[in-house]
Structure formats: structure tokens, C-alpha cells
Design a protein around this nucleic acid. Structure first.
Lengths: 336, 336
DNA sequence: GCAGCATTTGCACACGCTTGCAAAAGCGCT
DNA sequence: AGCGCTTTTGCAAGCGTGTGCAAATGCTGC
């Protein structure tokens, strides 16, 4: 019972009365087989419960059909939404997703990519962290395609997908100004990833263009708790902000909860809030948060289509895609 | 550049001045190699950037190290938390997770399991839906191990992990009664999965034991929106419930938001609410929901340890594990 | 019936690895 | 040195598949 005994193409061949190559071809789209034998093979396969061994196929073809997803904090709303989108797109493209968790430790992403190489993945998509240069080289040298999402690394080779973070941040300032806010604050985390810093920089720059200063507070790792702590700090200042741009929806949720339940502030009357990501909770009645929608579907589509694309047509090298984050107006800013 | 050209064990062998078998053994824990040659091989491998080809290894050993996770609605808080736990445990156990999305369509789970077989996965863990009997047979016949989480199927073979849903539901009734509630309601979805139905049945039974009736309302698929709709229906009844047990935290969040923002009810003063799952949002200040914590870590541990366990010791057959959902007291019920 | 051609089929090798088996090497002892 | 024993090593046979190549088959038009 415990012994693993899969049915092989040879057995199917015998049952169908054809050669083993025939059954191989019957399962290879576009191969040279007559319709009659193809049917006979398929029938025999069905009866025996045969399934092509993708390990062996991958060994021969030198491409496994596996795409490795490297991600930390999978359980976070934005990450899991992106993950859903990616796996769906991959399945549609006939690939299969391999999921590798990373933590904050240094070699974590590198180990994930090693796994990818060991399974001869056709490519890897990195949602968190950055790979070491050496391992990136190793991947590329092996014909592994790499996609970096929202991690701006400047080495050539990988496809880099990013958003217009700074421009988006600029639009927040005009929204705040139009709402009559004057004391702007930015709630960031200490993670310091390029996209977070771009939002901060863009916000500050646009504020300066309006002649406004920005109070910046950073704490923790872009989660709900971090938002509460930052709120705690910002709202106890002598000069209390009347508008906050949070680097992340999760932080915005924490911020709003703290503002309401600990400081009894009313949103948007006394405080305007804008977030980023448009996670599901942003649309919940308790938050009703105006925020920027990450185009997760578009991100996934371009990642997958580049991974599965023809190498000659798309070019394996140093692409950079910039996508647009759309502002979703809800009720956390006055006068939407 | 586009050609995939991995370095093979043969090249490592040549560089290290040993036979190909030696390098194979150097990478196989517990194989018979002298420490000196092992070091030489490892060094050569390092220099060449060699990574064992797990496709070929899996082909030989007839076990790939892949475990397939079959799940729908990955982006849901409870699902993604379970997913995080599972992938972590799998990585610790030296396995790697393959993620397959399913939708509500019928053959969806079956297709996922076919993928698993094609990649000769060592086992599959099913978080959503139920496989067809025939495909289950196929899996088991192939020595694929199967784990079903919260899906009570009674066919022998797979490991079935469940919670004490009905007993838990009973404790909700005593909590409501102690809070002085008399008009009980149960907010369910139309999904009709065994665990949801067990919660409903357990709740009704315990209420009856207290001489109380329960109004049941079912709508949609256990999400936030479903919770709002059910609230809409329940709270417009002539005899408005003063206590609601929601089949799911997500539904509870929707329910609470609707109750507060559309019906201006105060929780827990006018309405007590209990949920199930203990998703992260349940602990957010806006909800502060008393609910049952799914022991996701324990679930993942038992699933993985059974999958990776010695077949002779654990026995491949018909295990059933029942785990305990712990009540987490927060502020959505009076008198916690 | 046969030449000429397109289509289909089978053979055999390759892919990169593991592992049983027997030969070789090391080692402690007389 | 020689024996018996354990450890290490290399050989070669697989694992299940894809695919180039040549042989075989089918088809068309005379």
C-alpha cells in the first residue's frame, strides 16, 4: 500500500498496442500522431489512470513548468491578493506555482531561489526582499527568468514591475489641500523598501510645492499595529496633524482605529486619511478609506506574460514596467 | 543567453577528480562518502554553482519533495493564515509547497489533484472543496497521501483534520445566556460545508437545551458582504435578535458594520456578536470581536507531520484528528 | 500497379540523477 | 607481510520521458 507505483507510458503503450513514443506524442500538443492512434492511446490512458510524469518531462525538455513565488508575510491582505492573482494567471498560462516563504533573515531569499533552481523552475517572481547579486547572476546564467515586484533593484536581467508611487503621493497632497488641511503627516514604517520611500519622498516634495511641511513618523513593519503606534505618536504632538497619508492600508486601519477609539477624533471631519494598496478592508464600512488601488491583476498579467513569453520577442534583459495606481475615493477625506 | 544550461553532477565530478557517484553521494545525507572527498566535492560544486536537479532526483527516488496545496479564495484572511502556517511547516520538514487555486466549479479540485500526480507530489492538502471519489482512489493507489482540512468526507484513506465545531457552538449559547440575551440568531452562508453546518446545528441544539429558539439566516459565501446582507435581513425582522453567532469572522465583521452604520445599534449593549476563526481583523479595535481561534499552527503541524511521517508508524489509512477551537474573549459580548 | 509524396511509426539515445554490487582501499592485528 | 574486516569508490543499470532519424505506411494521380 505504501509503495508508490505509478503507471508509466510503457504500460499505456502495451495496452493500446502502440509504441511508447506514440503515447508520448499523443500527450504532446502538435506532435505527429494520427487521430486514430491518439484516440486509442487516450482511451488506454484513461482506463489505466495514466498521468504524464512532469518530472521526467521536465528533465528532458529542460523546463519544468514550475514558477517559484518568493514571498514573506503571505497572510497579509495585499500579499495574498497578489498571490491569488499570480497563481491564477500562472494556471491559465499552463504553469504551476511553487510557494516559498521567506523571513527577514538575510539569506532567506537566496535559499528560496536555490530551491527554484533545484526544481529547474522556469522562473521566479519575487514579492518580498531582494536577492543577493551572486544568486541573481546564478539564476540568469541558468536561464531562469526573474521578476521583481515593487522592489527596485537596478541590476539588469530581471523584469522590474513598479508603480508610480511618487506621482500618486503627489495627488494625495492636492486632495488634502482641497479639503482644507494644513498640517500634513506621513505615516511610514521602518522597512524602508523603495516603494515606501518613494511614497514618502513624493508626498514631501509635493507638499513643499504647496508650501507645506510634512511631519514624518516611522515605526515597525507596515502592519496594523505599526499604524496604531504611529498614530499614538503623531496625535499626541502639540501641533496635531489634520491629514495623514499612510504608507499602507494596514497602517491606515490601525491609524484610524487609534485616532477614533483613543483620541475620539472623527474622520474625515477632524482628520483626513489616505492609504495605499486598496486591500479589501479599506472598503469595509468601518474604514471606508480612500486609497490607491494596486493594479494586482495587471501586475500579475505582465509578470506571467513576460515569464511565459517568447524569449526572442520579449528579450530576456532588463525590462522595467511602470504601472499606474488608481486613486479610489471613499469617505476618509473631506470633499471627495 | 536564452538557452538553459545547468551545470551537472558530471562536471562537478570532473573538477573534483572523483566519479559521478561520489558527487551524488556527497549530496545525499547518510550516504557512504569519506569526509575528505565530500569536502572536495562540495567545494567544486560551490565554485561551479551546482545545484542538485530535484527533477532527476525525484524521478529516481520516486518522491519529489513536493506537497500540493489545494485551496480556493487564497486571499481570504483565514485561508491565507493557514497557508502561511502550512508552507512554513513544510519548509521546515524539507518539503516544498505547490499552490493550486480552485474555483467553485466541479472538476476544479480534481484537476488540481491531477497536477499533483503529474508532478509526483508526495501528498496533497485540501483546504477547499472535495475531490471526487475516483480521483481520491487514484491518488491513494499511487501512494499519494491526502489531507482534508475541515471538509468532512467519510471515505477512508485521507487524514481528516476537524475542529470541535458543535461543542464550540454550544459554548456560545451559554455565553449569550449569561449576557442576558434571549433572541438568538445564527448567521450562516449558503456554502453548506460540514464545519459550517456543524456550527449551526450545535448552536441550535444547545439553544434548545436552554429552551431558546434560533433564527437562522443564510446567504452567500461566508464573506464580508454576506454578513451585511444577513444582518440586513435579521435586523429588519419584527422581533429583532439581541445576539448573533456568525459562522465566520468575515461575516461577523460585515454584520457588525451593518448593525452599527445602518441600524445604529451599539455592540455589545444592544447586540452581542460572536464569530469564528479569529482572523487578524477580529482583534482590530473597530471590531474587538470575541470569537473562536482556529488552531492553525496545530492544524499545519499535524498535517505536515502525518504527510512526512513514516508510513509504517503512522499508518496510511483513515486517520481522523479532532482539534480544539479556543474561545477568545473580547468586547462584542456583554459580561466577558 | 507504380512512382512520388506526405504522414505516421518505431527504434534508440539522451536527460541528470540514485543505488546495488563488486572491486579497491584503508586499517588493526598477529 | 598477510589476514580479516570495515569503509570508500567506481561501474553500470536503471527511473520515465522527448525527439531525431530512418523505415514504414497511406494517399494521389497516372
Amino acid at each position: 500500500m505504501s509503495e508508490r507505483d505509478f503507471v508509466s507510458a510503457a504500460e499505456v503503450a502495451k495496452r493500446a498496442g502502440v509504441s511508447r513514443s506514440a503515447v508520448s506524442r499523443a500527450f504532446t500538443p502538435g506532435a505527429s500522431v494520427s487521430e486514430s492512434t491518439r484516440q486509442r492511446v487516450l482511451q488506454a490512458a484513461e482506463e489505466l489512470g495514466y498521468q504524464v510524469n512532469h518530472l521526467a518531462r521536465g528533465l528532458m525538455r529542460n523546463e519544468s513548468g514550475i514558477v517559484c513565488l518568493v514571498v514573506s508575510e503571505v497572510a497579509t491582505p495585499y500579499r495574498s491578493a497578489l498571490l491569488r492573482e499570480l497563481t491564477q494567471q500562472l494556471q491559465i498560462a499552463g504553469k504551476v506555482a511553487m510557494l516559498v516563504n521567506t523571513d527577514r533573515s538575510d539569506g532567506s531569499v537566496d535559499r528560496a531561489l536555490q530551491q527554484a533552481i533545484r526544481y529547474r523552475a522556469d522562473g521566479s517572481i519575487i514579492l518580498s526582499g531582494l536577492p543577493d547579486k551572486s544568486i541573481t547572476q546564478l539564476c540568469l546564467r541558468n536561464g531562469q527568468r526573474l521578476v521583481l515586484i515593487n522592489r527596485d533593484d537596478d541590476q539588469p536581467g530581471p523584469l522590474r514591475i513598479n508603480l508610480n508611487d511618487d506621482e500618486a503621493a503627489g495627488r494625495v497632497v492636492t486632495a488634502f489641500v482641497r479639503a482644507g488641511c494644513t498640517k500634513l503627516a506621513f505615516a511610514n514604517s521602518e522597512a524602508g523598501t523603495p516603494s515606501l520611500m518613494a511614497r514618502e519622498a513624493g508626498f514631501i516634495a509635493a507638499a513643499k510645492a504647496h508650501g507645506l511641511d510634512v511631519i514624518v513618523e516611522r515605526y515597525g513593519w507596515t502592519g496594523y499595529e505599526a499604524g496604531r503606534v504611529v498614530a499614538q505618536r503623531l496625535l499626541t504632538r502639540s501641533e496635531r496633524p489634520d491629514a495623514v497619508f499612510c504608507a499602507t492600508d494596514l497602517m491606515a486601519c490601525g491609524f484610524m482605529d487609534e485616532a477614533r477609539h483613543q483620541f475620539s477624533l472623527s474622520i474625515p471631519d477632524q482628520l483626513c486619511v489616505v492609504g495605499f494598496d486598496d486591500i479589501e478592508q479599506a472598503s469595509w464600512a468601518s474604514y471606508n478609506l480612500t486609497t490607491f488601488a494596486q493594479p494586482v491583476a495587471a501586475i500579475a498579467r505582465s509578470a506571467v506574460s513576460w515569464l511565459t513569453g517568447d524569449p526572442s520577442s520579449s528579450g530576456l534583459d532588463g525590462q522595467s514596467v511602470k504601472l499606474h495606481a488608481e486613486l479610489v475615493w471613499r469617505g476618509s477625506v473631506r470633499g471627495g
